[in-house]
Design a protein around this nucleic acid. Structure first.
Lengths: 102, 102
DNA sequence: ATAGTTACTTACATAAAGTAACCAACTTAC
DNA sequence: GTAAGTTGGTTACTTTATGTAAGTAACTAT
């Protein structure tokens, strides 16, 4: 074993290659959203979404804000770090449009 | 459920968010390589690498070439479609260097 | 009091990944 | 000629991740 790959790149890949993570971030690029909105637009189960949002919060990519309305509104949004993934997401979009069939 | 996400983008994410896929492609950007080289540089198990390379070949991203030398040499390389992922990989690299600690 | 909403969590089932041993084909060393 | 080494895998088994569905807490509306 002689891992020749940059550890930062490896960490980025570890984050982004978690199932659903990319789609969740992509979805949040269009603005702050609540749990159930992400759940249905991305198509991820609540169980996993909850897990992913916690991970992404810990990574400093997503911010969670509680609005004590009724019923309670909890808003998830991208931090600066999260927003900095936009060019990367645009590249994926570009590649998918150039090279993938539907 | 009202999936608002572009199906091409979703497919791209499905491919790229498979565990190890990104690292395998990144590794192949530096040129054609054999099975055991990828295995050790990426740190993936042979069982999964074998699976991923087949998937990537089916997607038209990776090409497999047999050189009947001794011992047999099998070379994996990126197709045009695979190489077209380079800008995306560079974006991940850039992001990881700008926003991640080691 | 009953039912509905949101944002979760829990328990259980299935799918994916890790680990390690094994195999085929061919070579070199003894 | 036979034992051991190399490459590129596969197979069997274990552990981890994800999917599914039901449950919970806090509050409102009827």
């Amino acid at each position: 074993m002689d891992k020749s790959i940059c550890p930062r790149f490896e960490k980025a890949m570890t984050i982004l290659s978690q199932r659903w993570t990319g789609l969740i971030i992509y979805q949040l690029l269009s603005g702050p959203q609540r749990f159930c909105t992400i759940e249905s637009s991305v198509g991820v189960s609540g169980r996993v979404l909850s897990e992913r949002l916690k991970d992404l919060e810990n990574e400093g990519i997503v911010r969670r804000e509680v609005h004590p309305e009724t019923p309670v509104r909890i808003e998830y949004s991208l931090t600066e770090k999260g927003k900095s993934l936009e060019p990367l997401m645009k590249e994926i979009e570009k590649w998918s449009q150039g090279w993938l069939e539907v």
